[in-house]
């Protein structure tokens, strides 16, 4: 029974953000008390909050059981540390540095991967040449390049950017190739019968037709890059969120370590919400077709 309940709430969680219009909400006045209560239990903010509440309760339980403030600080201690870091501005300084690096890495990865993906999808020879190289490099984790990167770039801001651009590159490239290859041939044929030149077909058909897939690639690229930044900064950088975690670990200040870990999660979550909104805005036609959700 418990597992049944869980699968249902997991389903709700995944469905609600996908298509808000699918959940029809009757007007408040016409609802019975039972319906009103049902509406309360299913409200998105409540579902999210409930998940967080369970998580924090578990955390509290485990920290009480472990009862070592270094191994597992309580949520309250972490919250205190968080407020302290926020009021001193240290938190935002590190967030700013890390997101800046993320942005640079994503711009670099996008400007290389997307045009290359178009080129590979449209040119059989290029695809035959580049694809094996991509498949060889793709399984290698970005972290594997950190030792070598330290030799080449040294400790600093360049190494994290390199690692992030590296991990962001592959999902962007592969999704672009997929998107371009999957273009409905009839759309290109239709444009051809309207006397639309090859060049205009590329910019006005191929690009928008591949966009939903590219956007999906971008979201995956962002998630991979954000996950990789910490490893890169942990070792190869004198600043940023990953560096802060390592710094406070050495000082045995676990609440601050946890506060930074939570921050990484929160920033990632918020950015993904932003990207989803961007996706809905840029590719509204792909909504409801299952693409990019």
């Amino acid at each position: 029974m418990v597992s049944l309940m869980e699968t249902r709430s997991a389903k709700e969680l995944s469905e609600i953000p996908v298509d808000p219009s699918a959940v029809r909400r009757p007007a408040r006045a016409t609802m019975s008390p039972g319906q009103l209560a049902g509406r309360f239990w299913r409200a998105r903010w409540f579902v999210v909050l409930r998940a967080f509440a369970v998580f924090i309760a578990l955390w509290w339980g485990v920290s009480a059981w472990v009862s070592s403030p270094i191994q597992m600080p309580t949520p309250a201690k972490v919250f205190d540390a968080f407020l302290g870091l926020a009021s001193s501005g240290e938190l935002f300084q590190h967030i700013w540095i890390s997101t800046q690096r993320l942005l640079v890495a994503l711009v670099v990865a996008t400007t290389i991967a997307v045009p290359l993906g178009f080129f590979m999808a449209l040119n059989r020879e290029a695809n035959a040449f580049i694809d094996p190289l991509v498949e060889l490099l793709r399984p290698i984790s970005g972290i594997a390049w950190i030792p070598l990167g330290l030799f080449i770039f040294g400790v600093g801001g360049t190494l994290p950017v390199f690692i992030m651009a590296y991990v962001a590159f592959f999902p962007l490239l592969l999704n672009t190739v997929d998107g371009v290859k999957g273009i409905d041939r009839k759309l290109l044929a239709a444009a051809e019968t309207m006397g639309v030149s090859r060049r205009a077909r590329l910019t006005h058909i191929a690009v928008p037709a591949a966009l939903p897939s590219v956007m999906v690639g971008f979201r995956i690229a962002f998630a991979s890059a954000w996950a990789a930044i910490i490893a890169a900064e942990l070792i190869g950088s004198p600043s940023g969120l990953g560096f802060a975690i390592e710094w406070y670990r050495q000082l045995l200040m676990s609440p601050k370590v946890f506060a930074f870990i939570m921050t990484i999660g929160a920033v990632g979550y918020l950015c993904d919400l932003g990207l989803r909104a961007l996706q809905r805005k840029l590719t509204p036609w792909a909504e409801g077709t299952g693409i990019g959700q």
Partner: peptide
Amino acid sequence: AERGVMFQDYALFPW
């Protein structure tokens, strides 16, 4: 363009 085509599934541009 002097020979316009209408396709079976219309081939409208979704965007």
